[in-house]
Design a binder for these strands. Sequence first.
DNA 1: TCTGGGGTCCTAGGACCC
DNA 2: TCTGGGGTCCTAGGACCC
Length: 437
Amino acid sequence: MPDARDEYPRAIVHFDGDSFFASVEQMLDWRLRGKPVVTGGERGAATSLSIEAKRRGLHRGVPMQEIRRLAPDAVIVPGNYTAYSIFGKRMYEIARVFTPLVEEYSIDECFVDVTDAAVAAGMSHEAYAAAIKVKLQESLGITFGVGLAPTKTLAKVASKLNKPDGLTLLPRSRIDETLAGIPIHDVWGIGGSMSMALKGLGIETALDLARKPRAWMDEHRFAKPVRVLALELAGVPVRTVGGEHAHGFKSVMHTRTFTPPSSDRAFLFAQLSKNLEAACVKLRRRGARACTATFYLKTQEFTYHSVQMTFHVPLNDPSSILELFSRRFHEVFAPGILYRATGVTLHTIVPNEAAMPSLFGKSAEEERRERSLACVDFLNKRWGNDSVFLGSTLLAMRERTDLVRSRAKPVSRRRNFLSCGEGSKKCLGIPFLGKVR
DNA sequence: TCTGGGGTCCTAGGACCC
DNA sequence: TCTGGGGTCCTAGGACCC
């Protein structure tokens, strides 16, 4: 019987919500339970599918028309990201009752390091992971795929193995037999480009990579990410839980694709303005400012043309930033070219408190601007996000309204969740989820 | 002037993730 | 897979310094 410390030098658990968005929809509306539910109605392709929908052979990315054809009884709903995000936050809170070592990896996933917490509770790592799983399911009404392993990469592999509602143990002694069945392109961190390169060198499974020594990495001049991956697959913990995503954020972005593509300079600038406003709202909501920004135009051929800039003071109001954008817009825009999207990223984030506007405090002008922004935020919160916006955005708003109007069918069958149609607000029916103790 | 070595910082762009 | 939106990390290469 191997010792627990050999099997799990660290005991990392990965939790992955099963059919997360669709499951949340089913929790919020009992009428959807037991039915094939598909989210993504607002974008015309499936984002998440309930178990019942998956059983009908549907999967992510399938166009809604196809869904309707293949499964006429499917219930198609628009994404309700506010609700998903509340369930996600709830998941982190519940996990943190068991240990503070919780990394918020994505809206429906988290990593938990239970190495010490389990010992302190006088439980095995397996039992502790199982207890968290039960608590999550009881509290949220959603099942999870769970993996327990000595490294984050292996935990991520394990949680996928017995979905839905599985708890998969992947101690060191079982690494070889498990990884032999995992194709290299299924490994977290290996994308299309890297898997091509690895396959060219005869690496077909996760086990093949785990067995490669450092000399081989040197010989083929592999960069850091692959080396880390190989170690983690071999059961050597390199990545720590909570290290990377524990707090804060590094950038906010807002991008939008429009159809049909356009070469109209004024329209494109209005799109940019709208994206900038949205990105600034996110920034202000988080009480932060940015010191750098990137904006881009994406052509119909999917090439990006971008401009990066640095502000001399941290900013979060769109009008000052837009002024800077307008001066450099000509660097990305070429007449006669068709563009399909624009985007804005704000980075080098600092908290508001750290961003004293000048040595002498706020000027009257800055005071005035802050007050008007607070007013805009209030109005948008009260009356919906598009109530107040910059004049430069107007052209983009008109366009959007036209698109909505021309849409043939409402995307939802549920009246109370209908989000299309001008001015109608999405209604949010989150049940009380109880107190975390 | 065509010639050293070495370090840091910044930027653009690629790759990957959910 | 002719492709939506929001993120993070890594690296090569240039600028600049001693």
